[in-house]
């Protein structure tokens, strides 16, 4: 079989999925909601982790996929959310739910801080600045007293939801599933909005977009801010789930991992990014049985996918 037929066949299957979208979606959703009744904690932990990465990847997809701005420091926004919740609940006794709007505000601020000075930069330069930003946030968290320094924060309160304390992994499975669905919905609406089209325009040709009356500066800032808010909210719930956070979670490799999910799945395409995020978490777990070789297998699989599907598993169709 040649590569061409392989590609066209897989594209055919993806097309088939797209035509029966609604039925498949309902079926899929029913399965997802039913899983906790049958699966053990380990499976739930892994799936909750998957939904978590779906949120992060979709958030980064807005910046990288829609607006075409390379971001190598995305973990910083996630750190902002996680630390906001961590600090407010463990040091100031805030209710968990109240920390979410605060985290969103801080994430917005972080988005403006990174977006503002970098607006005139393109590609490589932008990548370097975002990388630096990511490292600054991590190193600041490592050295500040309020963030607990190198050993981080512990004893973050578990949130209550209508009287039930969210302390089981099945609770977090549903929490992250709901957030992931929300993220998918928001991404979908954004993509088909005026803003979404403007992002696409700026991505394809910045000068032409500006000539057509698109406010380039505002558009790019929106992309950063919205992407940051996605990660910030995910970070809040991450802190609640883990009850402990440390700077080691927000390393450069974490940013790369999220970017990998986006590129691997297919930049700019929601189902693609969801698949990419899933692959990111599921691959190393499914191959846990083979021990320390699993990351090697993961790398080989990734290389093969990139060789045969350079646009990602499920790329966006360019019209």
């Amino acid at each position: 079989m040649t590569t061409d037929t392989l590609v066209s066949r897989t594209t055919g299957i993806l097309g088939l999925i797209e035509t029966h979208q609604k039925t498949l979606l309902v079926l899929f959703l029913a399965i997802l909601i039913g899983i906790p009744a049958y699966a053990n904690n380990y499976v739930l932990e892994v799936l909750a982790n998957t939904w978590f990465y779906v949120i992060l990847c979709l958030g980064l997809n807005i910046v990288v996929g829609y607006a075409g701005l390379l971001d190598l420091g995305y973990a910083a926004f996630f750190a902002v959310g996680a630390y906001t919740t961590g600090i407010l609940t463990s040091r100031f006794g805030f209710n968990f739910w109240l920390t979410i709007p605060v985290a969103m505000a801080f994430a917005t601020l972080a988005g403006v801080i990174i977006g503002g000075p970098t607006l005139r930069l393109r590609s490589d330069y932008l990548a370097i600045v975002t990388l630096g930003f990511g490292e600054i946030v991590r190193i600041a968290a490592r050295n500040l007293k309020i963030t607990g320094g190198a050993s981080g924060l512990i004893g973050i309160d578990r949130p209550h939801f209508f009287g039930t304390e969210l302390n089981q992994i099945s609770h977090y499975y549903f929490v992250f599933l709901a957030l992931a669905l929300l993220a998918i919905f928001a991404s979908y609406r954004l993509q088909h909005s005026r803003l979404g089209r403007a992002w696409q325009y700026v991505r394809e040709d910045e000068d032409a977009a500006e000539a057509m009356g698109i406010n380039r500066v505002a558009i790019k800032l929106y992309a950063y801010i919205i992407g940051a808010v996605f990660a910030g909210i995910a970070g809040c719930f991450y802190a609640a789930k883990m009850t402990a956070i440390s700077p080691e979670t927000f390393t450069f490799s974490q940013s790369i991992l999220i970017l990998l999910g986006v590129v691997f799945g297919g930049m700019g395409k929601i189902p693609g990014v969801v698949c990419g995020a899933g692959a990111l978490v599921l691959f190393p777990e499914v191959f846990r049985g083979i021990g320390s070789m699993r990351l090697l297998v993961f790398a080989v699989v990734m290389l093969l996918v990139m060789l045969y599907r350079p646009q990602g598993i499920w790329p966006a169709q360019k019209s």
Partner: peptide, 27 residues
């Protein structure tokens, strides 16, 4: 890594281990 550690711990719990030994990185 805290996330992977949580997954690893859940896996050991699901496998019904009687006890656990190890733990290198405090975080």
């Amino acid at each position: 890594d805290p996330q992977q550690a949580a997954a690893a711990a859940s896996k050991l719990v699901s496998e019904n281990v009687n006890a656990v030994v190890g733990g290198y990185c405090s975080g």
